[in-house]
């Protein structure tokens, strides 16, 4: 990535650092302060949206590793999230396993299921893989709905609040801290993977998997690893979601959600670390505003059809996905890069 003028690297450690300049550090600390003091000044409803945003960022970051870095399309990500959510629900409520362990276990179980459904990716790609993952979504949801003794079936399952060593995360503010800490860790994890050997192998596979194989990259290993990491993060997100909502059934993880996740990755920018954050925040805030404004609009204009409130969401998101793909295929992250370049060069923009 381009650096501001005058940034020189005198040793390898500094060359590899994520945060390079003083401005980076200052902005980073300011961001941390803003995020972690948010419960002090955000209202309850905004806080719960912030929680949902944090959870979604984890899932979408996982999806971004899969789609953006490794080029393997997955349209079943909500299904993998459901695997994580139900794992933690069963572990904490029925087996009494402490939350931190069950959080890791739900990531692992979602990752394993991801590997199973990712197996066809060794031989096929593109559309074939898309269909396989759609099938995964339906099969996972069917199993959840019909394995009533463990998952509560259609009725749903209640999940105890998360607690670490006696500290209960029972209010929105406490959950906010938990979710933000896990989200930050996951983002750092994703960034490290993307920067390292694994990430470069993924990018090589995305750009041309045959050429990558010729260069000595073990395709089977790396493709399945991409599925494992992507679904691991989805599982973590699902587990946090389960503890956050407290009661859920398979209705919380639909194919529509999976498509929306892909939309978020596309809108944010494929194959960037900042992309998922921008995409998720944009879509979730838009979603919240739509829910907030559409009943008001409907009562103000009685001429609108009665399905306005239900239908406007998908219409807007579908349009946003299409328009972004046509007009700005590199997503919001690209805009952010342009902005960064512009302010670094200001006032001499050349």
């Amino acid at each position: 990535m381009d650096l501001p003028c005058g940034t020189r690297n005198y040793d390898y450690a500094r060359d590899m650092a994520v945060l390079r300049t003083r401005t980076h550090w200052a902005l980073f600390i300011a961001l941390l302060v803003i995020v972690f003091t948010a419960p002090l000044y955000l209202s309850r409803s905004s806080l719960s949206i912030a929680n949902l945003i944090g959870i979604t960022i984890i899932a979408v970051t996982g999806l971004n590793i899969l789609i953006g870095y490794c080029g393997q399309l997955s349209i079943g990500h909500a299904g993998f999230m459901a695997v994580g959510a139900y794992t933690t629900a069963i572990f904490t409520s029925k087996l009494g396993i402490p939350f931190p362990i069950s959080l890791i276990c739900s990531g692992l179980s979602a990752g394993l299921i991801g590997i199973i459904f990712g197996l066809p990716s060794v031989r096929v790609k593109g559309f074939y893989l898309a269909i396989t993952t759609i099938a995964a979504q339906f099969i996972i949801i069917w199993v959840i709905n019909h394995w009533g003794s463990a998952t509560g079936g259609f009725v749903g399952i209640s999940v105890p609040t998360a607690s670490i060593g006696g500290l209960e995360f029972d209010t929105d503010a406490r959950q906010f801290y938990l979710i933000m800490v896990v989200t930050s860790l996951c983002l750092f994890f994703a960034k490290s993977i993307a920067r390292g050997r694994i990430g470069r192998a993924f990018v090589a596979i995305r750009d041309n998997d045959l050429a990558a194989q010729v260069m000595g990259i073990n395709l089977t290993y790396y493709k399945l690893l991409a599925f494992f990491i992507g679904c691991f993060l989805a599982g973590i997100a699902g587990a946090l979601f389960a503890h956050w909502v407290g009661f859920m059934n398979a209705e919380s993880f639909t194919l529509t959600d999976s498509i929306l996740f892909i939309g978020m990755v596309v809108i944010g920018g494929l194959g960037t670390t900042i992309g998922p954050i921008l995409g998720v925040v944009a879509i979730r805030v838009l979603q919240d505003r739509l829910i907030y404004f559409s009943p008001a609009l409907e009562s103000a204009f009685p001429a609108l059809p009665s399905g306005f409130t239900v239908g406007i969401g998908p219409i807007v998101f579908g349009l946003v996905i299409i328009l972004f793909l046509i007009l700005e295929p590199r997503g919001l992250a690209h805009r952010w890069m342009l902005f960064k370049a512009a302010y670094r060069l200001w006032p001499f923009s050349y």
Binding site: G126, A130, I259, G263, G311, V316, F317, I321, I322, I326
Partner: peptide, 14 residues
Amino acid sequence: ITVTLGVGYFLEGL
């Protein structure tokens, strides 16, 4: 592939 997903989503909303 993604654009057809977007189209599908749009039609469902419609």
